[in-house]
């Protein structure tokens, strides 16, 4: 059925005379000229506007801030990769954090715990977008897709050096096409929300209720 359908559809699409629509002028790149401070300011403003927490830290202080955030939220546990550069640093000082959990086996073997027993997850990011207040997250074997989705709190570290002005700029500067797309790439701009009831915003519908961004 599918092969016939395919052939029929493509044949029908090839039939009409199609107007030439040459479209070489793809100029989507930023018209903003924002320096680092301005990018940080815009990013923070947008993130806070959608109720994300943003902490401005340094390479020296970020671990302290993560620790304080965990304490302030009264987290019982925190899902952290033991393999990433950042994750290793948390694991190295595990006593400063809630019980550290690891996502080191396939979801099927511990789905129940992930869905009902994990308070928060900590991940790195692939970059950020100042214009819209957005984290670029590319889940991997070390930091799987559900980490930034299922636990009620998501704590993410963003290096200021990877904060781009626009989405288009990030795609180009980071060479997404050349690198090949990963299984999943995400833009995350705040905690999960809905306005489906009377256009009233409610947070934490299916994804995290809280998003904490640690800017380093």
């Amino acid at each position: 059925m599918s092969n016939t359908a395919r052939a029929n559809i493509l044949a029908r699409l090839r039939e009409p005379q199609r107007p030439e629509c040459g479209f070489s002028e793809r100029d989507y790149l930023s018209r903003y000229d924002w320096d680092t401070a301005e990018r940080v300011r815009r990013f923070t403003e947008r993130m806070v506007a959608v109720r994300a927490e943003v902490h401005h830290t340094t390479p020296e202080t970020w671990l302290d801030v993560v620790s304080q955030v965990c304490a302030a939220k009264g987290l019982n546990n925190l899902l952290v990769s033991p393999e990433t550069v950042l994750g290793k640093q948390l694991h190295a000082q595990a006593e400063r954090f809630p019980t550290l959990k690891t996502y080191d086996h396939p979801i099927e073997s511990w789905k129940q715990e992930l869905f009902y027993g994990i308070d928060a997850a900590f991940t790195g990011t692939y970059g950020g977008i100042a214009e819209t207040g957005t984290l670029i997250v590319m889940p991997s074997a070390d930091e799987p897709r559900l980490m930034s989705l299922v636990p009620p709190v998501h704590i993410a570290v963003l290096e200021v050096a990877k904060l781009y002005t626009t989405f288009a700029e990030a795609v180009q500067a980071q060479g997404w096409v050349q690198a090949g797309m990963p299984t999943n790439a995400l833009l995350i701009s705040g905690p999960s929300k809905s306005a489906d009831i009377e256009q009233t915003l409610a947070y934490g519908v299916h994804g995290p209720k809280e998003l904490v961004v640690i800017l380093v």
């Binding site: 989507y28 207040g133 957005t134 989405f167 288009a168 795609v171 096409v177 995400l186 833009l187 306005a195």
Partner: peptide, 29 residues
Amino acid sequence: SLSDVPPLLSILTRSATGQPITTYFNMIS
């Protein structure tokens, strides 16, 4: 092309709900 996506995403969310961007933009490959 992938470069067609950012401008369409931007005008989509702004036109639809008046959001600069939605919470999630999920790219599955």
